[in-house]
């Protein structure tokens, strides 16, 4: 591009600006690409960690996008531009001149573009086919993975749905509306929760205990439920230690001291 400058022709200032900005962007891009190449190609240094690699990859992609954006914005200016070689251009750098003077893509680049366009086209076609197939038979494409994802989702959703209803009644709303006197559910008496037993007497753990349902903590479950979860200490050790503190129990050191020395200190 130095040739433009030395030529001294009247390039309008805004065109100048466009070219300058583009050059700055391209330089940034080249810098990033070189850095990435150094990271990957140097056999003496270990490969970068993947988050780091991804960051530099993102950076490169961002810069490519910016370059593309600039080219697109100034498409008219750039495509109208004509490159005239300057006689003062150093002959030793003839190959650079040849590259600069090219009006067509290099053959390798041309192949590369064609290949990618074709691949993109095929991909779109394939996806289109897939969607049609899926429309026809939705269960067909439920793979093992999908199913594994589906079940946790189903449990959570069922829970949320369930919470939005008022439970605890013996009959459904429909049954009540029709009159529930004649319905036989097998329940002869109102259900009562079993009284909370003495924790120590319960230590038998003979499997007759009512199954304890594990609540699923979901976003969207209301605040009251979250409080309940905290109180049942689903949140684990933190809450457990907290409640010990709250009840001003003897610190474990003192228990140990008593167990070692036989006297309370």
């Amino acid at each position: 591009m130095a040739s433009f400058e030395s030529e001294g022709t009247k390039i309008e200032t805004d065109v100048w600006k466009v070219l300058d900005r583009l050059r700055a962007r391209l330089q940034l891009l080249v810098g990033s690409l070189t850095a990435m190449q150094n990271d990957l190609a140097n056999p003496n240094v270990a490969l970068p960690a993947w988050p780091q690699f991804q960051t530099s990859m993102n950076k490169v992609q961002q810069e490519i996008n910016q370059v593309a954006e600039q080219i697109k914005q100034n498409r008219e200016t750039l495509s109208n531009m004509v490159l005239v070689p300057d006689p003062k251009f150093p002959i030793r750098q003839q190959h650079i001149l040849q590259t600069l003077m090219r009006t067509k893509m290099e053959p390798s680049v041309e192949d590369w573009i064609e290949q990618n366009l074709k691949a993109a086209h095929e991909k779109t076609e394939e996806e289109k086919r897939d969607w049609i197939e899926l429309d026809r038979n939705p269960l067909k494409r439920l793979t093992e993975d999908d199913r594994r994802q589906l079940w946790p989702w189903a449990a959570v959703t069922a829970n949320i749905k369930g919470k939005s209803h008022i439970w605890g009644a013996d009959f459904t709303a429909a049954e009540k509306a029709e009159g529930c006197e004649k319905i036989e559910t097998g329940l002869m008496r109102p259900l009562e929760e079993p009284p909370t037993p003495d924790p120590y007497a319960e230590s038998g753990l003979d499997g007759e205990e009512p199954q304890q349902y594990v609540e699923v903590d979901v976003e969207g479950a209301d605040e009251a439920d979250k409080m309940d979860l905290d109180q049942t200490r689903q949140s684990g050790a933190r809450a457990a230690s907290h409640s010990t503190l709250a009840r001003s129990a003897i610190p474990m050191e003192n228990i140990h001291r008593f167990m070692t020395k036989g006297v309370q200190t």
Binding site: P199, E202, T244
Partner: peptide, 9 residues
């Protein structure tokens, strides 16, 4: 430390 109310659990 295991608080009394957590014991059964």
């Amino acid at each position: 430390a295991v608080p009394a109310e957590d014991h059964v659990q």
